[in-house]
Computed example of a mutant assay.
Amino acid sequence: MQTVHLRRAKDLMDARYADALDLDAMAAEAGFSRYHFARAFRHAFGETPGAYLSRRRVERAKDLLANANLTVTEICMVVGFTSLGSFSRRFAELVGCSPTEYRKRMVDRGGPPAIPGCFLMAWARPTAIADKQGDGTRA
């Protein structure tokens, strides 16, 4: 039964990987204390919540490095890391090369043309879609 609650927290991390999620927020989503959540998550999924979240961020960064015309620093911030050094170190741990080297490898393979960064940033920005009451205009 615990797994259902842990999956809720995991789904939160998958959906909001770029947000500043802390252990308290993830534990609250599961309905656990932070310490019980950390132990239960590791037992259920084989890694700590922090390791899982950073791995998800690196997975998204790989996609952006291969397909978007953004700098490594911009990608670092877009995926939720707050430090270029910690991003580069974690990326190298998981992927086996630096973000810059990874991008070079993807370009050398002849991947798809890069999506302009300005388009990507505008497309990824949340927008209000509900009609305003009374005047008929859209937000």
Rank of each mutant, 00 (worst) to 15 (best):
37 F>E: 06
22 D>F: 02
1 M>C: 13
119 F>Y: 13
121 M>R: 15
83 S>A: 10
5 H>M: 14
121 M>Q: 12
113 P>F: 07
2 Q>T: 14
104 K>H: 06
82 T>G: 15
60 R>C: 05
29 E>W: 03
17 Y>F: 15
116 P>W: 09
125 R>C: 08
132 K>S: 04
27 A>C: 12
92 A>D: 03
102 Y>Q: 08
8 R>Q: 12
122 A>L: 13
100 T>C: 02
119 F>K: 07
101 E>M: 04
136 G>H: 11
9 A>Q: 01
75 I>E: 06
45 F>W: 03
53 L>K: 03
90 R>S: 08
71 T>K: 10
3 T>Y: 15
117 G>W: 10
5 H>P: 06
19 D>N: 07
56 R>G: 02
134 G>C: 10
45 F>D: 00
62 K>N: 01
126 P>G: 03
41 F>V: 06
17 Y>I: 07
120 L>H: 00
119 F>E: 07
63 D>H: 15
62 K>S: 00
19 D>R: 09
10 K>A: 08
83 S>L: 03
27 A>M: 03
42 R>K: 14
139 A>V: 13
70 L>M: 13
119 F>M: 00
98 S>L: 09
56 R>Q: 09
12 L>I: 01
12 L>T: 02
103 R>V: 00
49 P>E: 07
98 S>P: 01
76 C>N: 02
3 T>K: 15
108 D>A: 14
132 K>Q: 11
19 D>T: 07
115 I>M: 13
67 N>M: 00
115 I>V: 14
50 G>R: 11
50 G>Q: 10
89 R>A: 02
88 S>M: 05
62 K>I: 04
66 A>C: 09
41 F>R: 11
21 L>H: 05
68 A>W: 04
14 D>I: 07
135 D>S: 12
